[in-house]
């Protein structure tokens, strides 16, 4: 088991430490409790665009990456519907550089029009590369609004459309920063050969002076129960048909969350899973098929997605998935299946 220690600074920053002296490195991870679900429906793609801007220089440090590379470190970040996450790996003896860099961009950014304009272009190219310029890339741009009618999970993190990114202004960006980037809206993790005492001392030095900010409490609409079957057919110039089915499921804190996760594993984790054995190997309906959960904080989705073998009618493929769902509902999960997926976790 991991050895975990926690403390909270007076400004509300929560800090978690895991000491691990088997490596010469340490990792600093900062999670901000802001994702694409916190966006205005008319200004989507903002949380992710903002993640890009976080590398464009902060109030006292003109370029973020250079000082980190100079001390032998590397970093990356991601945004999803729920959170924005930044992480640094660097030699432990240079850990203070991470505290310096991350506290400065939590304190304030150097908002520049030039950086905003460039990163808007970069993100638009990312939108094209990941969602438009490859077969099936745009599926989630349709599947989310089909699955959610009210909750902001109805748009993907990259944004509903390119024009939302194009329209972003410097004022929008500043508002977003002050509304969400704050010590009291973040969790910081240090893991590696850094000691708890060092973390305490450096956190006090670099992060404690950052003022608490007024983070507006989240108040998202709850997705109403879906009462009707929804179906969308999209025609594209792709080589084979594909099918996606989504079902609403519980939120991440619900007692059934892990059970749902295990069910998706029984269905499709590995070559001994049911969907692979029955629908790929035996019935030869799909070249690939998966069942998985979206894993989101609020009520998420349980998803089936499959690529059909050439010549298989969509109706046959869909029925085969429903048959597997029925088997699970009416039948039995074998003890060995449950043990197996538990071990894989």
């Amino acid at each position: 088991m991991l050895d975990i220690k926690k403390f909270t600074l007076e400004n509300g920053l929560r800090i978690i430490v895991n000491e691990d002296f088997s490596t010469p490195f340490s990792v600093m991870n900062i999670l901000y409790d802001v994702g694409s679900k916190d966006e205005d429906p008319e200004k989507t793609g903002f949380a992710h665009l903002f993640e890009h801007l976080m590398f464009g220089g902060s109030v006292n440090i003109p370029i973020y990456d250079i000082p980190l590379q100079r001390v032998g470190g590397e970093n990356n970040a991601f945004t999803n519907t729920d959170i924005t996450n930044y992480h640094i790996t660097l030699p432990t003896e240079n850990i203070e550089t991470a505290f310096w860099l991350e506290s400065d961009r939590m304190l304030n950014l150097d908002f520049s029009q030039k950086n905003l304009d460039t990163q808007k272009n970069v993100v638009i190219e990312e939108f094209k590369q990941r969602y438009l310029n490859k077969p099936y890339g745009d599926v989630w741009l349709y599947l989310r609004p089909l699955s959610y009618k009210v909750h902001p999970y109805q748009w993907p993190t990259i944004g509903k459309e390119i024009s939302h990114i194009q329209k972003a202004t410097l004022n929008d960006v500043k508002d977003f920063f002050y509304a969400h980037y704050a010590p009291n809206n973040a969790i910081m993790v240090l893991s590696g050969s850094v000691t708890f005492e060092t973390v305490k001392q450096l956190s006090e030095k670099w992060f404690a002076p950052i003022p608490t900010r007024n983070v507006i409490p989240r108040n998202l609409p709850k997705e109403p129960e879906q009462k009707e079957h929804r179906r969308l057919t999209i025609e594209r110039n792709v080589p084979f048909d594909s099918i996606y089915l989504t079902f609403h499921m519980c939120d991440r804190m619900d007692k059934n969350y892990h059970a749902s996760d295990l069910i998706s594993d029984i269905l499709s984790n590995g070559k001994s899973s049911r969907l692979y054995q029955n629908l790929v190997q035996k019935k030869k309906l799909f070249s690939e098929i998966n069942a998985y959960i979206s894993g989101e904080m609020d009520e998420g989705l349980f998803i089936f997605s499959g690529n059909l073998m050439k010549g298989v009618p969509l109706i046959t493929a869909e029925k085969a998935i429903w048959d597997e769902i029925e088997k699970l509902k009416n039948g039995y999960v074998f003890e060995y299946e449950l043990v197996k997926v538990r071990k894989k976790k």
Binding site: N60, I61, R70, V71, G72, N94, W100, L107, K205, P209
Partner: peptide, 15 residues
Amino acid sequence: MTIDRTKAPDYKTID
């Protein structure tokens, strides 16, 4: 305690 945030902390190179 005020700190000079414009100045990078000392570091060691990997030799």
